[in-house]
Nucleic acid binder design. Sequence first.
DNA 1: TAGGACCCTGGAGTGCACTCCAAGCAAGCG
DNA 2: CGCTTGCTTGGAGTGCACTCCAGGGTCCTA
Lengths: 150, 150
Amino acid sequence: METTATTTDSCAGPVHADRRPDGQDRYTISEVVAFTGLTAHTLRWYERIGLMPHIDRSHTGQRRYSNRDLDWLELVGKLRLTGMPVADMVRYAELVREGDHTYGDRFELLKATREDVLARIAELQDTLAVLDRKINFYADAGRALASERS
Amino acid sequence: METTATTTDSCAGPVHADRRPDGQDRYTISEVVAFTGLTAHTLRWYERIGLMPHIDRSHTGQRRYSNRDLDWLELVGKLRLTGMPVADMVRYAELVREGDHTYGDRFELLKATREDVLARIAELQDTLAVLDRKINFYADAGRALASERS
DNA sequence: TAGGACCCTGGAGTGCACTCCAAGCAAGCG
DNA sequence: CGCTTGCTTGGAGTGCACTCCAGGGTCCTA
């Protein structure tokens, strides 16, 4: 059986406490699960769809992730919560694999993403305002009911 | 045939320009499509799953939306882009239908949502920082390449 | 009164991002 | 040696939020 999200990950912050120094950075998949909060299924799936570079393997064929892979996963995690579709992230991964001559394209892609993020933040702040109006309404209504009961 | 998103909705802002005054507020579904940017399919689906109150009907059974319905859809739109699951919005809609005695629950739900939104904004700002670091890196790399070529 | 645009329904289909399964290999331990 | 735990694979399954379809009724204008 495969353990998926066993230990209580009470707070899903980036807890990369015990990263090993470069040179000894050969993490098993379950270690990466602990670092990233992703499931092993998802990590393997990311690799299949080309969102990860080909991961190094042990002599018996098991995955061994490097610090570089962890960095990449951290970026992917950030991009993911901007709502960027996985397909776009794969596109970016392809650009990275294709080499230095894609710097321009990557730059454009990141700038476009940046604009998206700014727009989303603005939307959320707008929503926050609506929410606060409603919250105030219900707070007042609650006080009114309380005084009515007294 | 059903027209879904025919006219060029170049900018999906809340363009509620020509709302009719209360009393004559009986909009067809396609008018609501124009207001909200949702498809007619989605509007009917929202009703089916209980995310909308039962919409008034014309004498032949066609939907006639009111200003109140439009207001509700505007709130739903906001909540939707916070990432709130539709099921939670349905829960809120149920509370509204149940009457005034659910004010407390609604208050709690909105407060929890508010916290979520704040957290998401923080995440996005964090992501923005990462993005900006990368963008600067690629900008520098671009300049380096340019000077190399000259 | 004919034509075209609009609207109705229940149920089936789609796309995305995972998520899980079965069957099997491998490593460490008593 | 057997047991448990962890890792491997390709492919199938899941849940969400729509999205569409067939087959039919309605509204408006010429």
